[in-house]
């Protein structure tokens, strides 16, 4: 993969996304949610998308806005149901969006595996539960495990705090969440950042996502939403 491109606009950053793509969307609730890239994707018009994200949108911003625009065919997530997830709830109840519920640790680890070139792996999460249905089970040293498959994607949308011009990323507090893992698991990783610093100005010891994983960067203004959260 060639070096990251610094885009002049969000529209340039999300150009070329095809209908039917799988998109990893960073964020945990609204912390780390790439709002600007999602708004750009709504303008860009790609539809029939599979979205992989921890939640299924809050209020009517970010992922909820994409769902409301009718662009999403399937959501793969750990926790869709929240007090302010009414956009998803309605689409789910009317059968207009498909849902695959994945335990949060498996969601992260399946993407990590995809990004690290690891194939299917055995994990003890969900043994004996309805989410084990249809999964291969094996016992090692007296403990049961389920076979889990990697999750890779066409695109990853990530919100980071700072980057340099070659695409090294630094995150801020718990907005880091899925970003570093998703960056590794997509063919094309697109990152919105609050600040782009000159190359050489980030401390190499504190870079969290190295530039090799990053394809497009676009600077955006910070947005501060509050979230009603889970109940």
């Amino acid at each position: 993969m060639s070096a990251a491109v610094v885009c002049e606009s969000v529209d340039e950053a999300v150009a070329g996304i095809e209908d039917g793509s799988t998109v990893l969307v960073g964020g945990f609730g609204l912390a780390g949610m790439p709002f600007d890239l999602i708004d750009g994707l709504i303008r860009q018009g790609a539809k029939d998308l599979t979205v992989v994200s921890n939640n299924a949108g809050n209020g009517e911003v970010g992922l909820a806005a994409l769902l409301k625009a009718g662009r999403v065919r399937k959501v793969v997530c750990s926790f869709p149901r929240q007090v302010d997830s009414y956009v998803f709830d309605e689409l789910y109840r009317t059968g207009d969006v498909e849902l695959e519920v994945v335990p949060q640790g498996n969601l992260a680890e399946r993407m990590r595996a995809a990004g690290a070139g690891i194939g299917p792996f055995y994990c003890p999460t969900a043994v004996g539960t309805p989410l084990a249905e249809g999964k291969e089970t094996r016992t090692f040293d007296g403990r049961e495990y389920l076979l889990e498959h990697p999750i890779s994607a066409d695109y990853a949308f990530i919100s980071a705090y700072r980057s340099d011009t070659v695409g090294n990323l630094v995150y801020r507090k718990t907005a880091r969440n899925f970003g570093p893992v998703m960056a590794t698991a997509a063919t094309t990783t697109i990152v919105q950042v609050q600040e782009i610093a000159p190359v050489g100005s980030l401390d190499p010891e504190s870079v969290v996502t190295p530039s090799i994983y990053v394809d497009r960067i676009v600077p955006v203004e910070a947005r501060h939403y509050t979230v009603q959260g889970a109940q």
């Binding site: 609204l30 970003g179 501060h224």
Partner: peptide, 28 residues
């Protein structure tokens, strides 16, 4: 209150001396 710092219930929280941040795969 900092939108980048929440707990698992998405409630804004604070950090204590000695805190550390890490990504989701490390957390699990």
């Amino acid at each position: 209150v900092d939108p980048d710092l929440t707990n698992a219930g998405k409630v804004p929280v604070t950090e204590l001396p000695g805190a550390a941040y890490f990504h989701h795969a490390d957390s699990f």
